[in-house]
Amino acid sequence: MNLPKVETSNEFFESALREFWDAFKSNRGALFGLIFICFFIFLALFGPFLSPHDPSQLFDNALRLPPSFLEGGNSNFLLGTDDVGRDILSRLIYGARISMAVGFSVVFLSATVGTVLGLFAGYFGNKVDYWIMRLVDILMAFPSILLAIVVVSVMGPGLSNAVIAVAIVACPGFIRIVRASVMAERKKQYIMASQTFGAHPLRIMFLEVLPNCMAPLIVQISLGFSDGILNAAALGFLGLGAQPPTPEWGTMLADSRAFITTSPWMVTLPGLCILIVVLGFNLLGDGLRDALDPRLKK
């Protein structure tokens, strides 16, 4: 018998990946976002090799030097120095490590907790759903930075506490998104089918439903990175996050605020870094959403 050629799953996977990539790369913004992020990830990974100086080394003879391309700059300090003579470029590079680590841990924590709670709420419905959603409503009733401040002031300032605080703030978004897509999947017959094959509810939730809810989750994860980084920087700026002399971008902003008129580069550069990274993640998230959502396909 002559059978038609069956597309093997590997080919299928490759073709799906290619389709996704085609949709993704047609979105210029998303591509730029990806490039920005790759650049900062590169900085974060190879920080110690790339930075010209130790980020906390004080150069007594070079206080508040402007970047080297400006008048009075020193080519030894490419982006200038701060008020106590530390090299800003090195601090920014080390700051990228911190911000990436913060973004990753915030997303990891909030996505894990949020996904589990969202799965339970969407799958079981009724009382479970009610209580989880009321918790979410309460969390969402607070302005996010205020809630983070409350959490940090209870637990004490510091980078790891700031991460936990920001993660708590980010949870409701994940819970809602996962819950909504679980509720949509829950009605489909394959859930009933796997029940009739004797699958345990936990097995159905994590192995059957969750893989079908990945598209919105991936988008939320990439947006969660930017929110996490932004909120952690804000806490740093308020003095509740990373403590000086940690080269965290938000903390750097706060430290240099007094010199905004005399040495504007000290404020501008860390601010620019936050802007670019957050923008990059947002652009990437938008691009992922467009590429993963079949309804938005052209």
């Binding site: 017959q189 394959y190 009933m192 009739t196 004797g198």
Partner: peptide, 21 residues
């Protein structure tokens, strides 16, 4: 759970949606 799928099993009306995509 031990009986479902082992002793009694079921097939459905819409086969396309009864399989996990």
């Amino acid at each position: 759970q031990k009986i479902r799928g082992k002793e009694i099993s079921m097939i459905f009306q819409d086969p396309m949606s009864a399989l996990n995509p």
